[in-house]
Nucleic acid binder design. Structure first.
Length: 640
RNA sequence: GCCGAUGUGGCUCAGGGGUAGAGCAGCUCACUCGUAAUGAGCAGGUCGCCGGUUCGAAUCCGGCCAUCGGCUCCA
């Protein structure tokens, strides 16, 4: 007999060799029916697995993320089966579970069309009903290679060859379909119900552009049909929040064929942008930053000196001036270096925190452009901090705090990643290790959890990245803190120490917003275009009911303007309903209706964005209300 | 850059080998109105660009450009 400890702490005695399914049945038939897999000592296993020794056991159902992942993975096998039935000769890539569903990569002469997806989905439904069991088999390495080779599954053979020598090679079979797979899987295809094929896209084999591009079919899969419907509805909702759509509707910015990736800011977008810059300057002044501005075009020798010519050329734009090579800056740092070198620095001057709202240009691949989230020219809210080695940790922590403070003001959730040395980089291993450890230490001090991104650092140093989600849950890097021992070296930066000798300062590159463009895009999606009052391009619109209220309305407008409130007056001869509807459509935080009653009492009828109810209040009370919200940067709960 | 899809008035979209259509927005006129669309009229497009097939192309074919969804890359 062995002891099986369940999730609730209870212990069951069962004979060795009992399968997990049998244990589940002994707990309840309902559980046995709902079970898709199980966690044995933390490892996800099939229900068919026989328990041989004492174990911690957690039965997984579709109520858990782990359970859903198993089901989604099984659904990807179902797709592969359907594809090979309908398009014989298709070679298989890989087919994992992902958030909300799964994908499977295929190599086929045939190009899959949206109509094919419908047919495949129908075939999947048909196959699912057949109640095929997912049966696990194990093969010796040589046998497995031969098996897949014979079937022309060259990618599977490659995968097997790359498995460690001692790896257990397992295969899963459902009906006429067999796939190389570590598993686990649900018991039967019958458990696969709420799925939908979504799209087909190109994807390089093993994610490398050096490899062949395969066709990736994406699908959604959920525990039940209503969950799938809910998710589809959520996707529709997300489209409404899309910053590209809202940016145009709210007249914030535009993009044109004539300038791909180079955004145009409209007047309202500029108000938003200027407000963000203003806030940025205030907060940085408080923290003893100074601000500079460096040129956009600098000559070739500078970029050679900085290493950009060697490591960043593909992303840069070039021009010639008087027969000499120049480059448009893709980063602000070299300019900052020259500024540092304009005089002798003392250790007493350090740290120098030198900010720059710098406009940079980078050549991004045409297929990568995406609204304001991925552009070819953008303004970084940059700063370069020159400091003593002993100040590193303290400075990094201060920046982490600063970024956290900013993101909290906007209500952003974020996660943190640490990116380490990339292949194409400069400097010694020792410097990189020191720098990486400093970043780790700062994160540890703050108790921040982070994910490591191996090889994703800048060419001159490792970095801490702050990621924010867009409306479709894709994450975008915004803030970043990069520790750099290389630039000071390349530019021979020095300071005079206590000992009267020259020493090498250390440098940090950091941004808080990341780029104004990306940050604005994320703000639009985060608030669904209904900005908090302090950010809103128009804060108040005054709506007179008829012509005879125009004069009072103009007075209200003038008084609000005097208080530095961004106010508009809608004097058109339209019905009040019409004007209100428009103010709502434009997501203006406050609509002030003024008619006879208000005119008489020196009051306004206040209607907030997204609310039905109106409140009549004295104009001076309204001013107090709105100014308080602006000053506290209050985030309205209505982002509908 | 790669794979696939798309490109018709400011916006959303219909149409489709015989010389363009709707709604919204815009403009004009009337209505002076109390919390999400008053009515009537007018104007607006060489159907992304270039080339080919054809008596005739917005429609079919090819190339290019841009956009969208991915891959790769990144603030």
């Amino acid at each position: 007999m062995i002891k099986v400890t369940l999730k609730d702490g209870s212990v069951r005695q069962v004979p060795a060799g009992t399968t997990i399914r049998e244990v589940a049945s002994s707990i309840s038939q309902g559980l046995a029916r709902a079970a898709v897999a199980a966690k044995v000592n933390g490892r996800v296993e099939d229900l068919n697995t026989a328990l041989q020794e004492d174990a911690q056991l957690e039965i997984l159902t579709l109520d858990s993320e782990d359970g859903l992942a198993v089901m989604r993975h099984s659904t990807s096998h179902l797709l592969a089966q359907a594809v090979q039935n309908l398009f014989p000769g298709t070679i298989l890539g890989i087919g994992p579970a992902i958030a909300n569903g799964f994908y499977y990569d295929f190599d086929s002469e045939h190009t899959f069309t949206p109509e094919d997806l419908e047919k495949l989905e129908a075939e999947m439904k048909r196959l699912a009903k057949q109640d095929y069991k997912f049966e696990r088999g194990e093969m010796a390495r040589e046998q497995a290679i031969e098996y897949f080779q014979q079937r022309g599954e060259k990618y599977k053979v490659e995968l097997i060859n790359d498995l460690p020598e001692d790896a257990q090679i397992s295969i899963y079979t459902q009906g006429n379909f067999t796939d190389l797979c570590a598993g686990p899987h649900v018991q039967s295809t019958k458990m696969l119900k709420a799925f939908k094929l979504q799209s087909v896209a190109g994807a390089y084999w093993r994610g490398s552009e050096k490899n062949k591009m395969l066709q990736r079919i994406y699908g959604l899969a959920f525990a039940k049909a209503s969950d799938l419907q809910d998710y589809l509805y959520k996707l529709e909702e997300a489209k409404r929040r899309d910053h590209r759509k809202l940016g145009m509707e709210l007249d914030l910015f535009s993009l044109h064929d004539e300038a791909p990736g180079f955004p145009f800011y409209h007047p309202k977008g500029m108000v938003l942008r200027n407000t963000l810059e203003e806030f940025w300057r205030e907060e940085h002044q408080k923290r003893d930053y100074v601000e500079i501005r460096t040129p956009i075009i600098l000559n070739r020798s500078l970029w050679e000196q900085s290493g950009h010519w060697d490591h960043y050329k593909d992303n840069m734009y070039f021009t010639k001036i008087d027969e000499q090579d120049f480059a448009v800056k893709p980063m602000n740092c070299p300019g900052g270096m020259l500024m540092y070198k304009t005089k002798i620095r003392s250790y007493r001057d350090l740290p120098i925190r030198c900010g720059e709202l710098g406009l940079v240009h980078r050549h991004e691949l045409s297929g990568a452009l995406h609204g304001l989230l991925r552009v070819r020219s953008f303004t970084q809210d940059d700063a370069h901090i020159f400091m003593l080695p002993s100040q590193i940790i303290e400075e990094i922590i201060a920046i982490i705090d600063l970024i956290d403070y900013f993101y909290k003001v906007f209500g952003f959730e974020y996660h943190v990643e640490l990116s380490t040395r990339p292949e194409d980089s400069m400097g010694s291993d020792e410097d990189w290790e020191t720098a990486t450890n400093a970043l780790k230490e700062a994160l540890a001090t703050k108790g921040i959890e982070y994910k490591i991104n191996p090889g994703d650092g800048a060419f001159y140093g490792p970095k801490i990245d702050f990621h924010v989600k867009d409306c479709l849950d894709r994450t975008w890097q915004c803030g970043t803190i990069q520790l750099d021992f290389q630039m000071p070296e390349k530019f021979d930066l020095t300071y005079i120490g206590e000992d009267g000798e020259k020493h090498r300062p250390v440098m940090i590159h950091r941004v808080v917003y990341g780029s104004l463009e990306r940050f604005i895009a994320l703000l639009i999606e985060h608030y669904a275009g209904a900005f908090p009052v302090w950010l809103s391009p128009i804060q108040v619109r005054v709506l007179p009911i008829s012509d005879r209220h125009n004069e009072y309305a103009e007075r209200v407008k003038a008084i609000l303007k005097e208080e530095n409130i961004r106010v508009e007056l809608d004097q058109r001869r339209e019905k009040i309903n019409y004007k209100i509807r428009e103010a709502q459509t434009e997501k203006i935080p406050f609509a002030l209706v003024v008619g006879d009653k208000e005119m008489e009492a020196e009051s306004v009828s206040v209607r907030r964005y997204g609310e039905q109810k109106t409140t009549i209040m004295d104009l001076k009370d309204f001013i107090f209300l709105i100014k308080t919200e602006i000053d506290t940067k209050s985030i309205s709960s209505k982002t509908v």
